[in-house]
Amino acid sequence: MTGSYAQAPITMVSAANGIEYAYREVGEGGVPLVLLMHFRGNLDNWDPAVVDALARSRRVIAFDNTGVGRSSGRTPSTIAQMALDAIAFTDALDLAQIDILGFSLGSFVAQEIALIRPALARRVVLASAAPQGAHGMHGWAKWVIEAVGEPEIVPARVLDVFYTRSPESRTAGEKAMRRMFTREELDTPTTWQTRQAQYDAVSTWGIPGFSLLERVTAVQAPVFVANGDSDPMILPRYSHLLAGLLPGAEIKIYPDAAHGFLFQHHEQFASDVAHFLDRQ
Rank of each mutant, 00 (worst) to 15 (best):
L241V: 06
A197S: 15
A226Q: 06
T204A: 13
S203L: 07
L212A: 15
A221N: 08
Q196W: 07
R195S: 13
P222R: 11
Q220G: 14
L241G: 01
A197G: 05
R237H: 12
D229V: 08
P236G: 07
G209M: 08
A221R: 10
R215S: 13
H240R: 15
I234W: 01
W192L: 14
T217P: 01
F210H: 13
N227Y: 01
G206H: 06
V225M: 08
G228V: 01
R237Q: 15
S203E: 11
N227W: 00
Y199G: 04
Y238M: 08
S230I: 01
P232C: 10
R195V: 04
A201M: 09
T217G: 11
P232W: 09
P222K: 10
P222E: 10
V216I: 15
G209Y: 08
Q196M: 07
M233E: 02
A218P: 00
A218S: 14
P222Q: 11
S239E: 01
S239D: 11
Q193P: 04
Q220P: 04
I234A: 00
V219P: 01
D200R: 14
A218G: 04
Q193N: 10
Q198E: 14
L213N: 09
W192A: 11
Q198S: 14
P236W: 02
D229G: 11
H240P: 00
A201Q: 10
R237M: 12
H240S: 12
V202S: 03
P222S: 08
R237A: 10
E214G: 05
R215F: 05
V219D: 05
R237W: 07
W192C: 00
Q220R: 14
Y238K: 02
V223W: 02
A218C: 02
L241W: 00
Q193W: 07
G228E: 03
D231E: 07
L212V: 00
Q220K: 15
R215P: 07
D229Y: 11
L213E: 10
V202L: 15
T194D: 06
L235T: 11
S211G: 02
Y238W: 15
R237V: 12
N227L: 09
V223F: 03
S239V: 01
A201T: 08
V219G: 01
M233I: 03
Q198P: 04
A218K: 15
P232N: 10
Y238S: 03
Q220Y: 02
T191H: 06
T217W: 00
Q193Y: 07
G209V: 04
D229M: 09
M233G: 01
W205T: 06
G209N: 13
W205G: 04
S230D: 13
V225A: 09
G206R: 04
A218W: 02
S239W: 03
L241F: 04
P236A: 07
